[in-house]
Nucleic acid binder design. Structure first.
Lengths: 191, 191
DNA sequence: GGCAAAAATTAACAAAAGATAATTAATCAG
DNA sequence: CTGATTAATTATCTTTTGTTAATTTTTGCC
């Protein structure tokens, strides 16, 4: 059975057996226990991630409160802003479940692209795709009410509700946990 | 006096006179009157833009209401989602002022990169920068209240308030024009 | 299994936003 | 300059969210 990264790459471009070996060589996989903090506010992100298994949450700490901005799950990549800008991170990354994560660094990405040049096109494509996704998400967030955001999340990522505490989903939706709880009750009564 | 695109590129990488000529050749500049719609919902964006002068607004039409998602002004690039995905656009692009805009297309970008390969690195860098900006904007939007978003916009882009109607700023901030008007009054009274 | 900690819900009240309608102000074309 | 159109404000009322605190439920650990 092939590893998930090769599977992922192969769904975009064809890799020769030699190239698969190279990718696997450059590949570092680590396991993290639930609760592990991968990145802290103020720290410099030295690595980017690709989730093989589990769930990682990004959040800001504002007035002592955690404000969730994203949940990353299987087959999602994390390019911390701090990793891209080389500035101290403004947010945290923490494992919400036991995780298996593939790690890469600027240095290792460089080597990998050097050895398998056609990966560069894929990376550019993914980067553009990431931008699109982010933009679409932002637009959708702005265009929807909290209640519609909640209902949409229920449809698009129902698994999240069994994987992370509701309070984190609340701040992800841009509301307080109390408000989410109230909203859920309201919705139940409606039908 | 050099044209703004050359100036812009030169602030990142060094261009030889020959390269400047090539860039200028591939460069198409158009003027649009205020009110011109550059992209319509359902249409396929064939071009991307770089604003030399003026202001372009992106907005969705939802239940007959315009919901502004971005204001693009001088030295900002516009990569419509539709341009990147080759899918019909979900939003509109319209000139809020008389504009001067540099246009590019997939074909022309390809030729340009072929002739000036070092531009590819710049484009990748800008793409990554765009992703960062978008992510930071989204996070900030989610972490701030409408009032704080308004105050922040006043600080970071005060020019907008003299360039576009408040109603569009309102939907950009994620609230209704009526609510913005009320908020402005509230803030005045406070001090 | 039972205890402690964390999470979720509920209640009550204040603050802000949405909706609708009416009024005032500003803009623009002839 | 003026009338017409568009934008902005104000008022009123409803709905939703924020805040704080108390209570119930769930989770995790020994």
């Amino acid at each position: 059975m092939e590893n998930p990264i090769i599977q992922f790459i192969s769904s975009y471009i064809e890799l020769t057996p030699q190239e698969i070996d190279i990718v696997n060589e450059q590949n570092q996989i680590k396991a993290f226990k639930k609760g592990t903090v991968l990145l802290t506010e103020g720290a410099y992100a030295k690595e980017c991630y690709f989730i093989l298994k589990g769930c990682v949450r990004s959040y800001y700490l504002i007035d002592g409160e955690e404000r969730t901005t994203e949940f990353y799950t299987e087959n999602q990549g994390i390019n911390p802003v701090s990793y891209l800008t080389k500035q101290p991170s403004e947010y945290y990354l923490a494992c919400e479940e036991d995780c298996e994560v593939a790690l890469s660094s600027a240095e290792r990405s460089r080597v990998l692209i050097e050895k398998v040049p056609k990966l560069e096109a894929l990376i550019m494509q993914m980067s553009s795709q990431l931008l699109v996704q982010n933009q679409v998400s932002f637009d959708s967030f702005k265009n929807l009410s909290p209640e519609m955001r909640y209902l949409k999340l229920l449809e698009t990522r129902p698994d999240l509700f069994n994987r992370v505490p509701l309070q984190h989903i609340a701040t992800y939706l841009g509301i307080t946990p109390v408000s989410l709880s109230r909203m859920r009750k309201r919705i139940k009564v409606k039908r």
